[in-house]
Design a protein around this nucleic acid. Sequence first.
RNA 1: UGUCUAAUGGUGUAAUGGUAGCACAACAGGUUUUGGUUCUGUUUGUCGAGGUUCGAAUCCUCGUUAGACAACCA
Length: 560
Amino acid sequence: MTNLTSEQDKKSLNFIEQIVETDLQQGLNDGRIQTRFPPEPNGYLHIGHAKAICLDFGIAQKYKGICNLRFDDTNPVKEDVEYVDSIKEDIEWLGFRWANVYYASDYFKQLHDLAIRFIKDGKAYVDEQTSEEIAKQKGTPTTAGTDSPFRNRSVEENLDLFEKMTKGEVADGKMVLRAKIDMAHPNMHFRDPIMYRIITSHPHHRTGYQWKVYPMYDFAHGQSDYFEGVTHSLCTLEFEVHRPLYDWYIDQFADSSYRPKQREFNRLNLTYTVMSKRKLLQLVEEGLVSGWDDPRMPTLCGLRRRGYTPKAIRDFVDKIGYTKFEALNDISLLESAVRDDLNKTAQRVAAILNPIKVTITNYPEGTTEPLLAENNPEDPNAGMRRIEFSRNIYIERDDFMENPPKDYFRLSLGKEVRLKNAYIIKCTDIVKDENGNVVEILCTYDPDTKSGMPQANRKVKGTLHWVSAHNCIDAEVRLYDRLFVVENPSDDERDFRSLINPDSKKVMTGCKLEPCLRDAKPMDKFQFIRLGYFCVDKDSKEGALIVNRTATLKDGWKKK
RNA sequence: UGUCUAAUGGUGUAAUGGUAGCACAACAGGUUUUGGUUCUGUUUGUCGAGGUUCGAAUCCUCGUUAGACAACCA
């Protein structure tokens, strides 16, 4: 019987794990497992990267190998140290540790030597055409390309010209080094791919102006993998067509049977958001969001500020899996992952976002009364805390209705409701302003129904949360919702910026919170009872608390 | 009229020739001092057509549909 259970609990392997296990069984690369996470330091990491990180580091962990962090910094025009630091921070926050930090720029010399070897072997040549001419000669996916007039230069001339490029004697864009493969190859990437281009105008964030030529992705990535001893080079599906070239380059110079293996998995797409670095950058630069860490952003720093936990993100990634099918994942799965985690860990606390005053008319004026409240019913070790009751309290405006529908079991005229951890109260009257808006609710309480007393067990349909007017604190609460109004903004013919949800951020001021939140620090997480999960924002100042809504609670009662 | 890849409920994912399962979502009910949590149940699926086989989501053939590739980006 126990056997059966453990059998059922055993999670099936994803296709990458299956490949790894097969490789291990066959003794590939001496049974060594080594992966790498290879971000380009040109932007902030988002949840799509988290999926790659979980796989790269996860595979290494699971199969007792190592995973290195390697910055793919071969294009100084786009890259910056700012991103290097944030990337490291985000990976560590997610809960992963790299064995080593490497940079593709560490290999510039090796790569350059290798390029010279290619030239000497007659496998590379310097082309002096413009990028337009080269593009034109490339052909199309269905028609063959044509050879460059510079394709058959002598080795000596190529060596000489590449040397001039390297020394900075040639202007940007005037020459490139190309691999000499096959301009008619059915795989476009084999049509004499560019290996090196000249960049003298931008300093590299690590090597400054030392280099005038920089390797292209295809000539840098696989070779770096090889230099490092990577066994499984995992990347996303769009690199599938690059794989034959990845293998070709390595086959040209490999001097042993060791081979890194590139395998591709599906990238993460989420509903109601965008994942492309370009679009995220645009949102930031055009001020459509408040920054890379705007809590609506799918960036790791944004999710962190929103109140997401590393565990929630890892659990989510684990649930969506790795396949070769280009999927669009429902954001509600992410939300359920964070609720699941926070439900077990977040302290419960009362907060009134849209307060309305309630006066308990038969409760003595000027007195307060201590009560006990559970910190977390899901965690027996979380303990209790003291709260205080008084004659004047606040409840949520939504928790009172003058003309309620039948299935409304909150407060309304003549009806009873329980105040969480306190008494059962009955609404006796309401006070309206000159416009007819309810401004105050008058109630009586039943002294025999204090929580813990026998009479408190009386059946009452609804339970409301509340705060006492005498000691509650004011706060700003920021309510976040999905950033876009359509499921898949990237698949819409309209400009994605016009699809931003105007209600994606609502700022509520004058919210009333339980006094125990007075000393809350940024990143502290709470469940506001009956409302959702919230996280203290870094914008908070002494005495001016700001709280972000991470996610609502699941709502079993939706008003039409 | 190219190369590569893929297609399982609404969404995502498992089943590796032998009972199509899980999660999310939705719905119904039990419990509940959170309309939360939890528990129980329900609805919905193998892209199509052939073939191999005692038996096909799985293998083969031909289609269909979708995605990636024509940056001096990664």
